[in-house]
């Protein structure tokens, strides 16, 4: 069994390097925003983890679809690993958003579209993992979980476009195809946001890879138990 925390793992080195550069840029290099002050630096955590949580549900959905198509266990493992890591990123997205909202909006939470759809994404992850935990093991569980995973991805574009479709308190989009052409990307903010997003993406991939390996080991244990009980039965006969 491979160690999940191998210090010479290229992905871990890449994640640590990018994260180090991102933290330097966030806390030392980028100038303080004039209106919100230091608290605006939460953006460089909040947006990348939000991206990670949406990437997570896309991977869950894509690998679930591939599982339904190919019936190969590796896709199911990838879906579970991605869902777990996506849940962590989704939780951080919600918490960082709430902590940011308190000083700038004077409230922890509002019922506006962007926040509500992001909360729904978090609950989709919870529902997916709870279903897998409580439904009896077997091919039917994997099939139904895969269907939940595929449906879950529908929420992602709604979250992305929510700030533009129902413009309320949440700032409009600054990245991606629906962002304003004169958005902050290209400035200092854009550079730091890009590097921070890359750093968190590598962390996401590293965590998914680690969870995937563990999931593979769990399957190996099940297989070994099955074969040892089969050989015990043969010995009895």
């Amino acid at each position: 069994m491979n160690k999940i925390l191998d210090l010479l793992d290229p992905l871990l080195i890449l994640s640590a390097t990018f994260m180090g550069v991102a933290l330097y840029l966030i806390f030392i290099w980028v100038p303080t925003e004039t209106n919100q002050g230091a608290v605006q630096r939460i953006l460089y955590f909040h947006v990348p983890v939000a991206w990670g949580s949406m990437l997570g549900i896309f991977v869950v959905s894509g690998s679930s679809f591939m599982y339904l198509l190919k019936k190969n266990e590796k896709w199911d493992r990838l879906a579970v690993a991605s869902a777990e890591v996506g849940l962590i990123f989704g939780g951080i997205m919600l918490l960082s958003g709430m902590i940011w909202a308190r000083p700038v909006w004077a409230v922890w939470w509002t019922g506006e579209a962007k926040l509500t759809t992001a909360l729904i994404l978090f609950f989709i992850y919870v529902a997916y993992l709870m279903f897998r935990a409580y439904f009896p093991p077997g091919a039917q569980r994997q099939r139904l979980a895969a269907i939940i995973g595929v449906i879950g991805a529908i929420d992602t574009p709604i979250i992305y476009f929510a700030a533009n479709l129902w413009s309320q308190a949440h700032p409009p989009l600054i990245t991606g195809p629906a962002a304003d052409s004169d958005s902050a990307l290209g400035s200092d903010l854009g550079t730091v946001l890009l590097i921070s997003t890359l750093a968190f993406s590598f962390v996401f991939i590293f965590m998914v890879q680690a969870r995937y390996k563990i999931r593979k080991s769990e399957d190996d244990v099940v297989e070994l138990k099955r074969s040892s009980s089969a050989s015990a039965m043969t010995g009895v006969n």
């Binding site: 303080t32 209106n35 919100q36 002050g37 230091a38 608290v39 939460i42 902590i99 308190r102 000083p103």
Partner: peptide
């Protein structure tokens, strides 16, 4: 804006 505060958040 309050540049000097909000570091706790």
């Amino acid at each position: 804006g309050k540049l000097e505060t909000n570091l706790g958040y």
